[in-house]
Design a protein around this nucleic acid. Structure first.
Length: 569
RNA sequence: UGGGGCGUCGUCAAGUGGUAAGACACAGGAUUUUGGUUCCUGCAUUCGGAGGUUCGAAUCCUCCCGCCCCAGCCA
C-alpha cells in the first residue's frame, strides 16, 4: 500500500491511550474489544465502533477481541452471531483467535458473585419487580433499603445457591450488589447482578437458570480478558462508577472504560428497535434491504468496506451528540468507486434513436475505455448499429438555453461512437407521445471525435437496440424524507417520515451486452448515471437486477432545480 | 427540581494560554469524449452568553443559558 495515507485525525481516545502508554499503566499493552449483543443485525453505528476498536488495536500493535455479550437468552439467537461475524469480516477486520462469549465466563462470574456475598457486598433480595422499582426512589428522591438487605452471609449464600439450583420461580429473587440506596446515581442503588430466567441459553443450554446482568458481566469479562481500554457509548457514562465498583470490590485487574458519542446519520434511524420495526412491518424487504443503514444493507446496496472504513475515520470520535450528513458517506463511496469501478453504458429509461443514414444490418464493434481514471483498466468492444436506445432525459423537443443534449437540429456526441444530428421525432398521432427520435450521423467522427475543431456540447450514453440486454434497475433514495426522522408532529412516530419514493423499480432498462457475465455483487459506474451493483440476491442470468448504490454528482439537476425555483412567483 | 455529560462555520471536527486546521456541503471559475473526475478560488475578526484573570483567552475562573443521558429482573 504505497498510497499516501491521510494522517490519523487527533481524538481524545488516542490521547488517552498515548497517556496510558507513557505512564505504563498497562505495561504498554493495548487490548480493545467489540462486544455486540447477538440480538440483531449490525448497523453503520456499530461500524464506527468496530473501526474504532479494531483500528486502534492495529494502530498501536495491540489486539481487539470479538466478544458476544450473550447474557440474556430470551433476546438472543444463533442466527445473529453468524451475521455479526460475517459483517465484521466483510468490513475487513480479523479477531484471529480472540473470539469470546460472555457465557464462557458464567462459572467464573458465579464465583465472583459468591465472593461478593461472602464479603457482605451482595445480597439476595426477595422483593417483587414492582417493589424493587418503588424502593429505588426517583431521580430527585433517594431510594430506601429493601427489608431483605441485611440477610446474613450464610442465608444469602444458601439462597443464591438455591436460585442457581432452580428452586425458585422467575421474579421471586434476585442477587443485588449492596451499595447505596441513596446514591444520586441510580445505577448505584443496589443494582441487580443476577436474575432468574428459566430459559435455555443458545450456548450453555440448560446449565443455568440464573443469568448475570450487563453491569456485572461486562466489566468482569473485560477484566478476565485483560482488556486495557473498554470503549463504549455515552449512555454508559453513568454506569462507569458501577463498572469500577465491581472491579475494585473484587480486587481484580481493572480496565478503563471510555465513552464516546454514537453515530447518527441524516435521513435514517439507527436504533435496533426501530430498524426491527421497519423489517417486521414490511416497510423494507429485510435487514439487508439496500435502504437499511445495516452493514448487510450497505453491502447489498453496493457500498465497499473501504468507503465505510474511510467514512468512520473521517467523522472523528468525540463526546458531543451529532448527526453526520449522509452526503459524507456518499462522498466516500464515490471517491472509492471513481477510481475502481469499470464504466459501462446502461439506459435506464430507453428512447429509440434511429440513425437514418446508417446502413441497415450493419454492426460495428467500437472501442470503449473501461475507466478513464485507471489506464490499466483497458478497453472493451461495444456494438453499434442503426437503431439505438438513448435516455429519455437526453432529448427535449423544445429545450431551454442551458440544455446541451439532443434536440431538433442539435448535434451531440454518442460516447465512444459518432456525432449525430437530430432530424426530427416520430410521435404517436393520438397521444402526442414521442415514439422515436430520428438523426443522421457523421461517418468522419468515428470514435466520437472530429479534428475540424467543431464543438459539441453534449455527450450521450447509448446502447444498440438489437444487442442490448434487458435489466431491472432499482433506484434507491433516502428511507426518510426528513434529515431527522425523529422530528414528528405530536401523536405520530418516525414512520410518518418514511419516504414513499425511496424505491423506484425500472424495467425494462437496456444495458451493454457485456454485462451478461457480470458477477453478483460486482460494481460498475453506469456512465453519466451513477454507481450500480449486481444485486447479490435477486439477480440471475435470466433476469439481471442492478441496485443503484449512489448517483453521480449532477450539476444539470442542480441547474434545473435552481431554474424551477427561480420561476416561482 | 438529583446525578452524569456536552456546547468551535449549514454538517462533522482539530485546537489543551501565543492570536481559529481539515473534511463534507455550498458558491464561483478552469480543464474535460461522463453536465462525472481533477484543479483553482471563496466560505467563523470569532469559539452558547455575560463578566473576570492575563501583555495575550476557544483554552483559566465565576455566573447564566441551551441540548443529551439515567428511575429494565435490557444491553
Amino acid at each position: 500500500m504505497a498510497s499516501p495515507k491521510r494522517e490519523n485525525p487527533s481524538h481524545f481516545i488516542r490521547h488517552r491511550i498515548d497517556e496510558d502508554l507513557k505512564t505504563h499503566k498497562y505495561e504498554g499493552r493495548v487490548v480493545t474489544r467489540f462486544p455486540p449483543e447477538p440480538n440483531g443485525y449490525l448497523h453503520i453505528g456499530h461500524a464506527k465502533s468496530i473501526c474504532l476498536n479494531f483500528g486502534l488495536a492495529a494502530e498501536y500493535g495491540g489486539t481487539c477481541h470479538l466478544r458476544f455479550d450473550d447474557t440474556n437468552p430470551i433476546k438472543e439467537e444463533l442466527e445473529y452471531i453468524e451475521s455479526i461475524k460475517a459483517d465484521v469480516r466483510w468490513l475487513g477486520f480479523d479477531w484471529g483467535k480472540h473470539l469470546y462469549f460472555a457465557s464462557d465466563y458464567f462459572d467464573q462470574l458465579y464465583a465472583y458473585a459468591v465472593q461478593l456475598i461472602k464479603a457482605g457486598m451482595a445480597y439476595v433480595d426477595s422483593l417483587s419487580t414492582a417493589e424493587i422499582r418503588r424502593y429505588r426512589g426517583t431521580l430527585t428522591s433517594p431510594g430506601i433499603n429493601s427489608p431483605y438487605r441485611d440477610r446474613s452471609v450464610e442465608e444469602n449464600l444458601a439462597l443464591f445457591e438455591r436460585m442457581r439450583a432452580g428452586e425458585f420461580d422467575e421474579g421471586t429473587h434476585v442477587l443485588r450488589a449492596k451499595i447505596d440506596m441513596a446514591s444520586p446515581n441510580l445505577n448505584m442503588r443496589d443494582p441487580v447482578m443476577y436474575r432468574i430466567m428459566k430459559m435455555p441459553h443458545h450456548r450453555t443450554g440448560h446449565t443455568w437458570c440464573i443469568y448475570p446482568m450487563y453491569d456485572f458481566a461486562h466489566g468482569l469479562s473485560d477484566s478476565i480478558e485483560r482488556i486495557t481500554h473498554s470503549i463504549c457509548t455515552l449512555e454508559f457514562e453513568d454506569h462507569r462508577p458501577l463498572y469500577d465498583w465491581f472491579l475494585d470490590a473484587l480486587h481484580v485487574y481493572h480496565p478503563t472504560q471510555i465513552e464516546f458519542a454514537r453515530l447518527n446519520l441524516t435521513y435514517t434511524v439507527m436504533s435496533k428497535r426501530k430498524l426491527l420495526k421497519l423489517v417486521e412491518q414490511g416497510h423494507v424487504s429485510g435487514w439487508d434491504d439496500p435502504r437499511m443503514p445495516t452493514i448487510s444493507g450497505f453491502r447489498r446496496r453496493g457500498y465497499t468496506p473501504e468507503a465505510i472504513r474511510n467514512f468512520c475515520e473521517r467523522i472523528g470520535v468525540a463526546k458531543r451528540d451529532s448527526m453526520v450528513d449522509v452526503a459524507l458517506l456518499e462522498h466516500c463511496l464515490r471517491e472509492d468507486l471513481n477510481k475502481r469501478a469499470p464504466r459501462v453504458m446502461a439506459v435506464l429509461k430507453p428512447l429509440r434513436l434511429v440513425i437514418e443514414n446508417y446502413p441497415e444490418g450493419r454492426v460495428e464493434m467500437l472501442d470503449a475505455e473501461n475507466n478513464p481514471e485507471d489506464p490499466t483498466a483497458g478497453t472493451r468492444k461495444v456494438p453499434f448499429s442503426r437503431v439505438l436506445y438513448i435516455e429519455q432525459d437526453d432529448f427535449m423537443e423544445d429545450p431551454p438555453k442551458k440544455f446541451f443534449r439532443l434536440a431538433p437540429g442539435r448535434e451531440v456526441r454518442l460516447k465512444h461512437a459518432y456525432y449525430v444530428t437530430c432530424t426530427g421525432v416520430k410521435k404517436d398521432e393520438e397521444t402526442g407521445r414521442i415514439l422515436e427520435v430520428r438523426c443522421t450521423y457523421d461517418p468522419d467522427t468515428r470514435g466520437g471525435w472530429s479534428d475540424d475543431g467543431r464543438k459539441v456540447r453534449g455527450t450521450l450514453h447509448w446502447v444498440s437496440a438489437a444487442h442490448a440486454l434487458k435489466a431491472e434497475i432499482r433506484l434507491y433514495d433516502h428511507l426518510f424524507i426528513k434529515e431527522n426522522p425523529e422530528e414528528t408532529e405530536t401523536d405520530q412516530d418516525f414512520r410518518a417520515n418514511l419516504n414513499p419514493r425511496s424505491l423506484e423499480v425500472l424495467f425494462p432498462c437496456r444495458v451493454e451486452p457485456g454485462l451478461a457475465e457480470a458477477a453478483p455483487g460486482s460494481r460498475y459506474q453506469f456512465l453519466r448515471q451513477g454507481y450500480f451493483c449486481v444485486d447479490p440476491v435477486d439477480s440471475s442470468k435470466d433476469r439481471l437486477v442492478f441496485n443503484r448504490t449512489a448517483t453521480l454528482r449532477d450539476t444539470w439537476a442542480k441547474i434545473q432545480q435552481a431554474g424551477r425555483q427561480g420561476f416561482r412567483p
